[in-house]
């Protein structure tokens, strides 16, 4: 973080911002609470303390495929290590013979009848998607998650509204922990929306009994190319 730049904000009078922005009465009212909150905080916050250095947190690099497989399975996901797209297509065909509406966002997958682009701007019409096949940048061994962004997955609702979700880790990358994951994210193109997805949707709200398939997909299959 650029401390100097942030620090400079403090001396800039808020009133100046206010004059520029207060074109509407409503905005003016908003500014009052804003100023009130900010000045109370400035008066009450303790003396500045240093930020913790978290660069030392690292996971072990060994056995990542096995670890990832074990964790993903434990949280209700399915794992497939595959050599190419043909193997993915064959597995999907065998696993989801009933799927009628399939949306596939992964290149070079030869499975029967699927849509590759979502031409219908009405996203609510995705409600009958049986299977969505999407790409993810990488997976995380410690928690079974995959990282997706809206660059590869459009529209945002697709991996949530589908009945079943299949995710292909195209580069086969698995990081040990979330620390390495965020280091990688810092090097990737900025996103408008991104999500870690770890397993099928689930709930244990009724007497702590685990039920798979809450509001999102009822299953999650992850394909890692090796």
């Amino acid at each position: 973080m650029n401390v100097a730049r942030v620090g400079a904000n403090r001396i800039r009078p808020y009133a100046a911002n206010g004059i520029q922005e207060c074109t509407k009465r409503r905005t003016f009212k908003k500014m009052n609470s804003r100023d009130k909150i900010l000045s109370a905080i400035a008066a009450n916050q303790p003396e500045r303390t240093a930020l913790a250095d978290i660069s030392g947190f690292k996971g072990a690099e060994e056995n990542l495929q096995n670890k990832y497989a074990a964790v993903l399975t434990a949280i209700g996901g399915r794992i497939y290590f595959v050599k190419d797209e043909n193997e993915i297509a064959a597995t999907i065909a065998a696993q989801f013979p009933e799927a009628k509406r399939i949306i596939n966002l992964v290149d070079n997958l030869s499975i029967g009848n699927f849509e590759t682009v979502i031409s219908d701007p009405e996203i609510h019409n995705l409600k009958n998607v049986d299977l969505a096949i999407i790409k993810a940048k990488f997976a995380v061994a410690e928690n079974g998650a995959v990282w997706i962004t809206e660059k590869e997955v459009q529209p945002r609702v697709l991996p949530f509204i589908c009945e079943h979700l299949a995710v292909v880790i195209t580069d086969g990358i698995i990081f040990p922990t979330m620390h390495e994951a965020y280091q990688k994210i810092a090097t990737l193109e900025e996103y408008g929306y991104g999500s870690f997805i770890a397993g099928p949707s689930k709930t244990a709200d009724i007497e702590q009994s685990l039920v798979i398939g809450a509001h999102g997909p009822r299953s999650m299959s992850v394909f890692v190319k090796v």
């Binding site: 949280i75 928690n143 079974g144 998650a145 929306y193 999500s195 870690f196 770890a198 949707s201």
Partner: peptide, 17 residues
């Protein structure tokens, strides 16, 4: 919270659709 390694979804909202 629950002894899970992470929640199923950790969604990062940065820009609106």
């Amino acid at each position: 919270a629950t002894g899970q390694p992470i929640t199923t979804y950790s969604s990062h909202f940065k820009k609106p659709r």
